[in-house]
Computed example of a mutant assay.
Amino acid sequence: MKLKVRNKLSIVFFTLVLALLGVFTSSTVEATETGYALKAVYGTNQVDKNGQIDIFGNPGQTIPVTIAIANQSNADQRFEVNFYTAGTSDNGIYEFKQGIKKDSSMKINAKNYVKPLKQIVTAKANSIQNVSFNITIPTNNFSGYLMGGISVAPYKQKAKTSLTSNGTLIKNKYSQGIPVKIRQDRNNKKDPKFRVLKVVPTANKTLKSRGVLANVQNYVDGYVGNLNVKSTVTRRPDDHKFKVKATANSQDVAPNSNYNLAIDWGKKPLQAGNYHLHMKYTTDDKTKSWIVDKDFSISDADAAKYNKLSGIKPNYMWLWILIAILALLLVLGLGIYFGRRNQNKQQPMNNNMNNQR
């Protein structure tokens, strides 16, 4: 249940972030149905004014950045404003929120160069409140991006609860955010590099589906948004009868992050064996692509476990057939054994009778 709640919160939060990008690019701040909205306030050292904060600077230089919170409600509102380092959700969405684990490939963490990380601010009724942060460009050289985001939520917000049709309790908290990019040079650009760290079985009892999760890592500080990925799973050695294909669009994989990409096997049950995963990430304009390959295995125990979790009932017909065959062989064997033993007993008796004659 906790996993479903966490995924739901990520979807709600970052759907709002993407939806609000149109608000960020407007010249005025427009309120949402929640009574507040955000906008980036552009200063110096800004690369692009496209709804996000994208700054550059010399190593050691401190650059102030500002966002505007528009409170268009008729009452004062307090907000919690946080800066978080970026990660990637299991839906392939660029995210910044509390609780994201630092990726093993990350050498420079953006949050270590932002002050303050958290602020509580009050926006007067029907007014705009500016909130500023100081971002220091790291002295360590890097050729790509440090990325994160500024998240704004009502202070001490109470979660709204709802119950899904399958009885899952969902707790939602509303937030809005503005993405942040940090570069050492305005011309700094770097592509991502992908690899699959591991592939593990998975199942969804509600959807009665099963498949695998590929843990994909962007292990450099490069970034290209809105990627499409095609995945193909085949059996090893070459088994042309087995093939599983899956696609996922609009993948925004943050620099130095990892996420679990689901590959659904449809109606096919999981089978123990050795497999190969082939993935291809492609930009929308198809000018760039990245190939990722990974061998993996599924054990008998995992195949049985996740098939059962997805609602597949074990088929023991083969076992009953095997038992019947073994029982038949046993009966035949015993028949042959006792037949030969009786024959051997009768043979000496016949020999004695012949000698007496």
Results as ranks from 00 to 15, higher is better:
Y94P: 00
R210Q: 14
D191N: 08
G225R: 04
T232H: 01
N82S: 07
N126V: 05
N188R: 01
N166A: 05
P348F: 10
A248V: 04
V292Y: 09
K308E: 02
D285V: 12
N204M: 03
E80Y: 02
R236I: 13
N342L: 13
P192A: 05
S89A: 03
G60D: 15
V331W: 08
Y219K: 08
K268A: 10
N134F: 08
A203K: 02
I63G: 07
T34S: 13
K171V: 06
S299Q: 05
N109W: 09
S165T: 14
V253N: 02
M317E: 10
Q217M: 12
N45A: 11
L18P: 00
V47Y: 02
S27T: 10
T282A: 07
N82I: 00
G57W: 07
T247V: 09
A40P: 13
K156F: 09
Q61V: 09
N7F: 02
K107V: 05
Q72A: 10
I55N: 01
P116Y: 06
L21Q: 14
F79E: 02
I63C: 09
N188G: 13
L334K: 03
D54N: 12
N315F: 04
Y281D: 05
F296N: 07
N344C: 00
N350T: 15
K97F: 04
T85F: 01
Y36V: 12
G60H: 11
I150R: 04
A324H: 11
T32D: 07
V29Y: 01
A203P: 03
Y219S: 14
Q271N: 11
L20Q: 08
W290F: 15
Q356P: 00
D185Y: 01
Q251F: 00
L169S: 05
T206K: 11
D48Y: 13
G225F: 03
V5W: 00
F242W: 12
A301Q: 15
P179K: 05
L163T: 09
A301M: 05
M349C: 07
Y316C: 00
Y84P: 00
S175K: 09
A70V: 04
Y337F: 14
K313Y: 06
T66S: 11
T122N: 12
D54F: 10
A301S: 12
Y281A: 13
K243N: 08
H240S: 14
F296V: 12
L329G: 15
E30A: 11
